[in-house]
């Protein structure tokens, strides 16, 4: 359980960042294009899905989460689950007849 007191820095090359950046721009392009098409209720789902994918890349590469210890990953899952619970449980109220 206990984390080691280690300090190894992981150097990520410039090229990788540019690669991720291009990907993010591409996803931005897709989300703008897709928003013009009417999918009904699915529009927001698609938009949020793409936003989640983009965040995943930012988190893992720009924010180095991929190279961090397990504890950090556990932390971030805790935080996200908490937020999803806050959001989801509120909808126990709103998505049913009041």
């Amino acid at each position: 359980m206990s984390e080691h007191r280690h300090e190894e820095s992981h150097v990520i090359e410039y090229g990788n960042y540019i690669f991720i950046w291009l990907g993010l721009l591409a996803f931005t392009g897709i989300t703008v294009t897709v928003s013009g098409i009417d999918f009904g209720n699915w529009t927001i789902v698609i938009a949020l899905f793409i936003a989640c994918v983009k965040s995943w890349y930012v988190l893992n590469y720009f924010m180095h989460m991929k190279y961090e210890d397990k504890v950090f990953k556990l932390f971030i899952v805790t935080a996200l689950v908490t937020f999803i619970i806050f959001l989801g449980f509120t909808f126990w109220d709103y998505s049913f007849v009041r």
Binding site: T82, I85, F86, F89, W92, D93, Y94, S95, F96, V97, R98
Partner: peptide, 22 residues
């Protein structure tokens, strides 16, 4: 403890489902 907040609001006009769950 983070999942029970709406039991403070049973008479505030929530949906029945929410009341039951909370």
């Amino acid at each position: 403890g983070s999942l029970v907040w709406a039991h403070h609001m049973f008479t505030a006009g929530m949906s029945d489902t929410a009341q039951f769950v909370f």
